[in-house]
């Protein structure tokens, strides 16, 4: 699987390269800034991209903007954004682009190699990978409607929002697929959401619900 990385910090870039090479990915290019990243994506047509939020020249949110730009140029281009901190606003902006294949993780997660690689593969396959921190922030702020969920349903909701499929959720919580299916039905019922098939659309529905309910759009 070919990867293009946008990361200006050499330490982290070589670290990522080392890690991904060791699990069988091929690093097509490492770009040090947004323009270089966009060029590399056009040149290499990677299967998945990894983008750091802060890039030169101003080290603000160039990475997010480059990721959004790349997805506008190449609809459905899988993008996994890495950041030193989590900001749900960025997650919302990434999810607002059309098509699946988006991820937003804390850089710390890279050190959990198996989970990181799993997330990267999920994004490459058009799925979603949202950091537990994003979900925790969303859940913390939506106390009222979420309160009707049982603790187990909340766990299922969090894993669903991170982008995991029913099998993984069942494995993680050590319950049967059937039980997961029942929990998900209950969650969608209680929150008044239309039941959608699994995959990106389901994640989107849940995240939009969590994100949108606390917000009035200003004009």
């Amino acid at each position: 699987m070919r990867v293009v990385i946008a990361e200006d910090n050499v330490l982290l870039a070589t670290g990522l390269e080392l890690l991904l090479n060791s699990v069988g990915f091929h690093i097509a290019a490492i770009a040090g800034d947004a323009a270089g990243f966009l060029t590399a994506v056009r040149d290499h047509r990677p299967d998945v991209t990894i983008v750091d939020v802060r890039l030169p020249p101003s080290f603000r949110d160039e990475g997010i903007r480059a990721a959004l730009q790349a997805r506008r140029e190449h609809p459905g281009l899988p993008v996994l954004v890495l950041s030193q901190y989590v900001e749900q606003q960025y997650a919302a902006e990434l999810l607002a682009t059309t098509g699946g294949g988006v991820g937003y993780l804390l850089k710390d997660r890279v050190s959990r190699v198996d989970e990181f690689v799993d997330a990267l593969r999920r994004v490459a396959a058009g799925g979603t990978a949202m950091d537990t921190e994003v979900i925790a922030q969303l859940l913390a702020n939506r106390s009222d409607p979420i309160a009707v969920l049982t603790p187990r349903e909340r766990e299922v909701l969090a894993l669903m929002a991170q982008g995991h499929d029913n099998n993984t959720i069942a494995d993680r919580l050590v319950i049967t697929d059937n039980a997961v299916h029942k929990h998900i039905g209950n969650i969608f019922n209680k929150l008044g959401l239309a039941v959608t098939d699994s995959g990106h659309r389901r994640v989107l529905a849940v995240l939009t619900y969590l994100n949108g309910a606390g917000q009035i759009d200003g004009d």
Binding site: D61, Q84, E87, Q89, Q137, N141, D144, G214, G218
Partner: peptide, 27 residues
């Protein structure tokens, strides 16, 4: 706050109001 460094006051306050559990309008 990193979001302030990234996006300035307008962007940071947009994030803060969006995050508030009570629907909040920002002007």
């Amino acid at each position: 706050p990193p979001i302030l460094a990234d996006r300035g006051l307008t962007g940071a306050l947009t994030a803060v109001t969006a995050r508030c559990g009570v629907p909040t309008r920002l002007d």
